[in-house]
Design a protein around this nucleic acid. Sequence first.
DNA 1: GTTGAAAAGAGCATACA
DNA 2: TGTATGCTCTTTTCAAC
Lengths: 163, 163
Amino acid sequence: MGKRELDSVDKGILYLLQRDARNHTTKEMGERVGVAASTVASRIKKLERSGVIVGYRPRIDYERAGYDSHLIVVGTVPTERRDSIIDELAEVSGIVNIRTVLTDEENVSIEIVGATQSEVEERVEALNDRGVSVVRTDLLREEHERPFDHFGTGLADDGDEFA
Amino acid sequence: MGKRELDSVDKGILYLLQRDARNHTTKEMGERVGVAASTVASRIKKLERSGVIVGYRPRIDYERAGYDSHLIVVGTVPTERRDSIIDELAEVSGIVNIRTVLTDEENVSIEIVGATQSEVEERVEALNDRGVSVVRTDLLREEHERPFDHFGTGLADDGDEFA
DNA sequence: GTTGAAAAGAGCATACA
DNA sequence: TGTATGCTCTTTTCAAC
């Protein structure tokens, strides 16, 4: 499915979903965006089917969940083996996020979580065994997420959300 | 609110939410985890209140949404001004994610989205004006997200999800 | 804390503008 | 394409365990 042009209703809905993707009702969103609840529902389905919305995830505070060690590993993978290496990282426990960028060096960033520091250290070593040449390992301090503002400025009333 | 110990029901629920935080019913989750639907609902509420679940967000394919330029900026912010600088980045359009790590150099990673390359380049320059010394700018290639496996191995039946 | 049943509310499909 | 109505299913609530 190709690219879609988003209108202001789509953008308003996306904005509200980014503020809270689970505890908004379609009715509420419809009022904010100026459209009927059923329209909101069908727009969301369409955004899902067209691939603009890929899925929904909870934001988890791993520390509160009892996993004290949370770090970002920056590494290099040879571009020609990149995809297969990334696939195999599925077998390493504790990896919650992987980003790859279009460069030859330091082209992968891996977020790893674990209960203890030593547990996570083992996992970092496992990365080296699997073809990721680790350049740097940093403790994650904070992660801020914010709605992409183009999806909402003036398109939806801001109520109070749990930001 | 302090740390919580998660039992296997909590972990199973978190696992399922990570697979899809919006299109699972509590009944379905209850069946997979071996508990009643109402229990699932109350556990989720508790996880939200205790801060283990911080929120819910859609995963958006920005390219399909018509925003072609998507990049990761790695930079350095002076640690003593870090929090205020991060706060002020709220005024820069297109920033969707900011991570800070516990080092003195290259301690911030900023994800920026925009409609065109030049638009995003302007925004990167705006970062320099606001106290972020930009070290590197890379085009984002792919981002993989996966459920933290400790939250679910064997605790929830895997149906087929849209992973 | 967990359950199951009853009430309230949301989502979905059909029909229509 | 967007909106409204009615039907179905989900979520919420709460008394009992």
